[in-house]
Amino acid sequence: MAGVVGYQELRRPAAFALRTLAVAACYFAAARLGLLCRLTAQSAVFTPVYPSTGVALACLLVFGLGCWPGISLGAFFLVLSLGPPGPDVVGIMVGNTAGPVCACVLLRRVGFRTDLGRLRDGVALVFLGALAAMLISSTVGVVSLLLAGKLAAPHFWSTWLAWWVGDAMGVLLVTPVLLVLWEARRPPSAVRWKEALALAVVTVVLVTAATHSTMSALFLVYPVVIWAALRFRLPGAMLCALFASVMAAIAARDGVGAFARLSPVQVMLKLQLFNGSLALTALLLSAVITEQHHTRRSVEEACKELAEVLEHLTAHGSPAGRAPARAQPRRERGAR
């Protein structure tokens, strides 16, 4: 027994270390992917979607608040990969960790469920997890750059806005996808796979054409997202939205299609407005559809149970109900 207890005590630190390293690796890899589509506006380098924030929040919601050291470690390695570390590295680490941790705490306080099966879960993720909590990471990070002398005061607000929007988009686009993949239990049927393949082909063709066309046809993306939300609910809608956001970021980086002949500030505003409206549409619409599906299934199950109860009462109550009808004429004949 003592050997088993000692093994378990040794196993806990090892599991914690492995989990911390895994979270740090995922955070670092997601950040490097996000930096591939970085843009510049008024001397501010920003990523339209910072996926590391979404990865961090998903890890906190799934594994608990105890995985926050992995987020800090991943942020530290990211700063080291971008250049020699300075006094701002501590502030960036604190901000990048405090934002997702605050988002996780706020979501848990309102009873957030990771399956995103209710409209209130989608609304909470938008306003508490993305828009409110990411104010912490952007403010702490930009103030750290300003105090370290790496950012000029006139560029404070443009950098702050780009940082905040990038973190918020990471939560809106990446966190739901990771939560859906974590909650997935069984693959769809063969018929659903055919429709999913058709949806994927249409999405790739239509989104590529919409983002790279000079006709500014970004609105063509929304019918695909609506189709995905109606048929595949949250997984399909968020995957389509994430792909469309990535393709739009690539077009904005290259200055082609809907983002051609625009100033850097106009590119940033147009891209972020598109990403924000697309993420809100996909998340909230799929949440409403999922909630209606759950409600309809609950009503069907209740009706089925009620029918079984009525059938049971009818089967056991009919003999007793017929007995008095047969006994009544006999009593009347005896009285005569």
Results as ranks from 00 to 15, higher is better:
V4S: 12
L18I: 14
T20C: 15
A22W: 07
V23I: 15
V23M: 04
A25W: 00
C26E: 04
L33P: 06
T40C: 02
T40Q: 12
A41V: 14
Q42H: 13
V45N: 06
V49N: 05
C59P: 00
G66P: 09
G70W: 09
I71Q: 04
L73P: 02
G74K: 08
A75G: 13
F77T: 10
L78Y: 12
L80V: 14
P84T: 15
P85E: 09
D88K: 05
D88S: 14
A98S: 13
A98K: 01
C102Y: 01
A103L: 11
C104Q: 14
L106Y: 05
G111Q: 07
F112R: 04
T114H: 01
T114Y: 01
D115T: 13
L116P: 00
G117I: 00
V123Y: 11
A132Q: 01
M134R: 11
L135H: 06
L135C: 14
I136F: 10
V143N: 03
A148N: 13
L151V: 11
A153D: 09
P154C: 12
P154R: 10
F156Y: 15
F156L: 14
T159L: 02
L161G: 02
W163P: 08
D167M: 06
M169D: 13
P176W: 03
V177F: 04
L178H: 02
L181T: 08
A184K: 13
R185N: 07
R186I: 04
P188T: 12
A190W: 13
R192N: 07
E195F: 00
E195V: 03
A196Q: 11
A198F: 11
V201L: 15
T203N: 05
T203S: 13
V205N: 05
A210I: 04
S213R: 03
T214R: 14
T214S: 15
S216G: 02
A217Y: 02
W227S: 05
A228K: 08
L230W: 00
G236F: 01
M238S: 10
L239V: 15
C240S: 15
A241I: 04
A241L: 07
M247F: 01
I250R: 12
I250L: 15
R253C: 03
D254I: 01
F259E: 08
L262D: 04
S263W: 02
V267N: 01
G276H: 02
A282I: 08
L283M: 07
L285R: 04
V288E: 09
T290L: 02
E291T: 05
Q292Y: 05
A307Y: 10
V309M: 10
V309P: 00
L313F: 08
T314Q: 11
T314I: 08
P319I: 12
P319W: 07
P319Q: 08
P324S: 09
A327G: 13
R330H: 14
